[in-house]
Design a binder for these strands. Structure first.
Lengths: 189, 189
DNA sequence: GAAAAAACTTAATCAAGATCAAGAAAAATA
DNA sequence: TATTTTTCTTGATCTTGATTAAGTTTTTTC
């Protein structure tokens, strides 16, 4: 199962067998049930999670009391509250499995150990962070430039299989509008 | 002038004198006049820029033809289109000096050289990317949770000196609304 | 397979913020 | 200093998407 992670790492840096074992020694695999949280607001985030399979959502509770999804965690994505992880302060986010899932868990401590014994790991995470940052800016760009309907169509075209997998109200939240709006958009066609 | 950069690096990793020199050997300092662009849409981004002093804005042109600011580049921030830099493909962004400015220029090539001769540099950038990513998620959070007026007040409280430095219409763009709205918000008090 | 819970739809009303247009003020430049 | 350019303001109108509320469909659970 962790092969998915090794494949991912190898897309950024190349590891020999020893290095692969060293990496695996620093992580554990954990099963997460549908609806189970691996992080809740108020708790301190202690690890970085790599999604081996299944699907997660990361959200916060708005002033209005509504849940706002800030990102989805799919296969081959790292998910965590980096602010809480880095600072050791309580998180404002929830991370919850949308489907039964398996994650590779890399605790903060093990991550540091790994970095000091294998600089390549640091390079890998530098590239992962850079990609995540760029993706976040792209997301901002869509929010600023496209209407609700355009955002939906764009997302639907880019990730058709994913749209089938999650409840519509979650997709609406992620895209920045209400379930009612999504329902009307879909009714148009 | 590059002392600002050394100080910044030293906040994340500690460098001895030799390492400091090695770092400086990989970069050059460039003066940028007010209104001058260091990146325009359609061009390939070739470097990562560290703002020594002055101020930049990074923006794109919306479907509607309006400029949309995605971020400001202030003292001690790295600014670049990482997507273009990494892929070698044309950028969709503009980066322009709002005031006369000085930047430390780290080309893609030099960055790679630096990383291979000094793993600490990779660590520094891993941390910088991680922080930038976290900041971007925080920005999304404010956009989703706060009204135009709340976003303005929040920003104004957090960065009062900066608000004085940039034209209001740029601030409005960054915060995701029109100059007219900002004008009306200000008229209230 | 019945009951309960979760997710989706539809329609009416409302509000935040966009757009348009014109003029005023401030800043840059000759 | 005069003048051109840039930035800011104000008010009228319009639009997108939010809210509310009730009913329907689908999925889960017992």
């Amino acid at each position: 199962m962790v092969q998915a992670l090794l494949n991912h790492v190898n897309r950024f840096v190349s590891l020999n067998t020893d290095e692969q074992h060293l990496l695996l020694d620093h992580l554990s695999v954990r099963h997460v049930n549908k609806k189970e949280h691996i992080l809740v607001a108020g708790a301190i985030c202690t690890a970085n999670y790599f999604v081996l399979n299944g699907c997660f959502r990361m959200y916060f509770i708005k002033e209005s009391g509504q849940e706002q999804i800030v990102q989805f965690g799919l296969n081959n994505w790292w998910i965590s509250d980096l602010t809480s992880l880095e600072s050791g302060k309580p998180s404002g986010f929830y991370i919850q499995a949308i489907e039964d899932a398996n994650v590779a868990v890399l605790t903060k401590q093990n991550q540091e150990l790994l970095f000091s014994s294998m600089p390549k790991a640091e390079r890998y995470f530098r590239l992962v962070m850079q990609k995540a940052y760029a993706a976040s800016l792209m997301r901002l760009q869509y929010l600023f430039d496209l209407s609700a309907e355009e955002r939906y169509h764009h997302f639907n075209t880019a990730y058709p299989e994913f749209v089938q997998r999650v409840p519509q109200y979650m997709l609406a939240s992620y895209l920045g509008f209400t379930p009612e709006v999504l329902s009307k958009i879909r009714a148009k066609k």
